[in-house]
Write a protein that binds this DNA or RNA. Structure first.
Length: 215
DNA sequence: ATCCCGAGGG
DNA sequence: CCCTCTGGAT
């Protein structure tokens, strides 16, 4: 399947794919993105109002103790690490970046809790920088659809995607792949019966690809 | 029971 | 490279 066909298909399936994290400014988005690891956007959105009422800006969160932050995000799981991360994130923003969320990859990556994936999301959402954030969904789907090879690491996957997908579509495609990964192309038991890409898929679900090994 | 939209650390 | 951190959704 050609790249253009895949992109067209994704457009039909998820015409309005977008970041579902609620946020009013770059500070809130940066915090929300870090919190979103291993949870859903909906869960993050649930804790955001109280969290940002208590810590309306980076300075106030930096001034707090980690133990004061934890209760607000406990329901997300991994709460201790996340509290340490967003506290350090707020501290870094206030102390090293004049209270502003950095607008470039290098600086973003120096902030606690912000890896390449989160940095890319921040760049895309806050600053409109065309970017493809490669998370587990995106890398898995890229392999299955043939955008990348099985042995590629995250950075290599990102490179392939940047080369094969038109720049103007990077952000949209990223979100579409996330949606596709969550709704259909799961890691363990992909719902290949609902997938328009099964035929060209490199690692289809055994139950569908093989022949119906019926009972 | 099983899986998550990562990052940091050993 | 592999491990851990955690609760919630399914």
């Amino acid at each position: 399947m050609k790249t253009s066909e895949i992109l067209e298909q994704l457009d039909q399936m998820f015409p309005d794919a977008h970041c579902e994290l609620n946020h009013r400014n770059a500070y809130e988005l940066a915090v929300a993105v870090v919190l979103s690891a291993q949870t859903t956007d909906a869960s993050v959105n649930r804790v955001s109002p109280a969290l940002f009422e208590r810590f309306p800006d980076a300075a106030s969160m930096a001034a707090a103790k980690v133990s004061e932050i934890e209760p607000y995000i406990r329901s997300l799981g991994l709460y201790h690490n996340k509290a340490v991360s967003i506290h350090g994130l707020a501290e870094g923003i206030t102390e090293r970046f004049d209270g502003k969320v950095p607008d470039n990859m290098k600086d973003l990556m120096t902030l606690p809790g912000v890896g390449r994936k989160c940095a890319n999301v921040i760049l895309a959402e806050c600053y409109g920088v065309p970017s493809i954030a490669v998370d587990t969904h995106v890398s898995r789907i890229s392999r299955r659809l043939g955008f990348a090879d099985p042995e590629d690491d995250l950075l290599t996957v990102e490179k392939h995607l940047r080369r094969k997908i038109p720049k103007a579509r990077w952000i949209r495609t990223h979100h579409q792949m996330i949606f596709f990964g969550r709704r259909i192309c799961h890691a363990r038991n992909p719902e290949c019966s609902r997938c328009p890409f099964v035929k060209g898929c490199r690692e289809p679900n055994k139950h569908f690809s093989g022949n119906s090994e019926k009972d």
